[in-house]
Computed example of a mutant assay.
Amino acid sequence: MFDAVFFSQFFILAAAHFFAVASPGPDLAIVVKQSIRYGKRNAIITSIGIGSAILVHVGYSAVGIGILIKNSPLLFDILKYACAAYLAYIGYKSLRVKPSAPEQFNQKEREDIQTGAAAFRLGFITNVLNPKATLFFLSIFSVIVSHETPNLWLGTYAIYLSLATMTWFCFVSLVLSKEKVRNKFLTMGHYFDWLMGVILIGLAVKVAFSSL
């Protein structure tokens, strides 16, 4: 159970995951948008959704479906185009936000409440369809994790990666949703929504042209 080989796998996996989760990508863009637009609560729920989706990636990598995805350009293309379309859709909705006077923002926000279920679903779907996450787990499980790794350790990896992802994005949510930070962005009003729309559509294009 306490084999040094598996401890070594864990630490390498944890280190690789730290750099991967902290790098810019669709997950971070969504958390930034949620933090500024909807505040701390919904941003944290979205972060939990992102972390929960990690279990899906670990699951298919552990049972070998990851090998099928890696060896099937068609399946990978379906995944990345689905992600690109989803990000483009969210970006398009942001670009459609109409200008409003600053004093109208709070009222508009109250009228545009996002449910916790919708916030969780946004994070979960974004990460599940994120080719960056898929490529990370395909690579890490084919290079670091062996077929001899016990299920107990695989479960430990899965729980750690999920919780570590949640923790990181919850931290980002707490920082960006602070009143002073958030108010600075909110003074931009619809310009912030437009900016995030452009970023999300740009990420959609990048994802669409990603490759194995």
Rank of each mutant, 00 (worst) to 15 (best):
F141A: 02
Y81G: 02
K93V: 09
L13A: 02
A84M: 09
H147V: 14
F11T: 10
Y157P: 02
I67S: 04
K33E: 12
T149V: 06
V56I: 14
A22Y: 04
I30S: 04
S162T: 08
V32C: 09
V56C: 12
V5G: 01
R182C: 15
S173D: 08
T126H: 02
D27C: 01
C170V: 15
F185L: 09
E109W: 11
C170T: 12
S8H: 12
N127W: 00
V205E: 06
R121Y: 14
L74F: 15
I65Y: 10
G202W: 06
E111F: 10
K108A: 15
L129Q: 07
I113L: 15
R96G: 04
F171V: 10
I67H: 01
Y86N: 11
R96I: 03
D77V: 12
I44V: 15
A164F: 14
A208T: 05
L176P: 04
I54R: 01
Y191D: 07
H190I: 08
A62K: 04
Y60D: 00
G155W: 00
N130C: 07
I199P: 08
S142E: 12
I90K: 05
A29N: 09
G64P: 04
I50Y: 10
S8V: 10
G189M: 09
G91K: 11
A62I: 09
Q34G: 01
E148W: 01
L161Y: 10
G116H: 08
I125Y: 01
L135W: 01
I65W: 10
A119P: 03
S72R: 00
S52G: 15
H17Y: 07
G116F: 06
Y157K: 00
F137Y: 08
Q104E: 11
R37N: 13
V58L: 05
N151E: 15
A119D: 07
A117Y: 15
W153R: 02
L138R: 00
L75N: 03
H17K: 08
N71L: 09
Y38F: 15
S139A: 11
S211P: 02
I12F: 14
F141L: 08
I144K: 04
G123T: 05
E148D: 12
I48T: 09
F18A: 14
P150Y: 13
L203H: 05
N183E: 13
K132Q: 14
P150S: 12
N42Q: 15
S146I: 05
V128K: 04
